[in-house]
Amino acid sequence: MKLEMKDRPGQLVAALQPISAVGGNIVAVIHQRETPAVTETLDVQIVLKLPEGRLSRLLELLREQGVNVVRIDEERLLYECTLIMIGHLMHTDLSDTVDRIDTTGSAEVTELSLVMPAIASPSSARITIRSTTRTEMKKAIRILRGVAEQKSLLIIEPLEGA
């Protein structure tokens, strides 16, 4: 599920406590960089996992905290798969790599950790993809394999499927 809110000072912190109070798990916090920086607010998306039936209680708690939820996107990204990529990730346009999955619409990269040891040497990244169905996950991994081949990246897949 995704919650979108205005990032006024303090709002993010205020949102976190209720989420854990209802047993939710934060998958990712994404700042929408496209929003013009001139406005003093910034859009924030929180992607989170929530046990069934806790949404209304969460919204109630958020309202009490004064958090302004702009949009709720109750997409059920049930499948999760974490892979590791090795190679010249930045030089081969990492955001394009991520976009190729995100633009499928039914799978998205929800987490990315990047380690760049030295300028010329290959970097390593852990990438988590979530999707609505198993088929979509397979498709996303196929896309990633294709991109990896094209960009000479090594993809390390998990032993167990999505």
């Binding site: 974490t82 590791i84 090795i86 950790s113 380690v115 040891p117 970097s123 390593s124 990244a125 852990r126």
Partner: peptide, 15 residues
Amino acid sequence: LLTPEALQLAEDQDC
């Protein structure tokens, strides 16, 4: 082509 960083990224998730 494996890197120690890749192993560390796996390790961070108990893998």
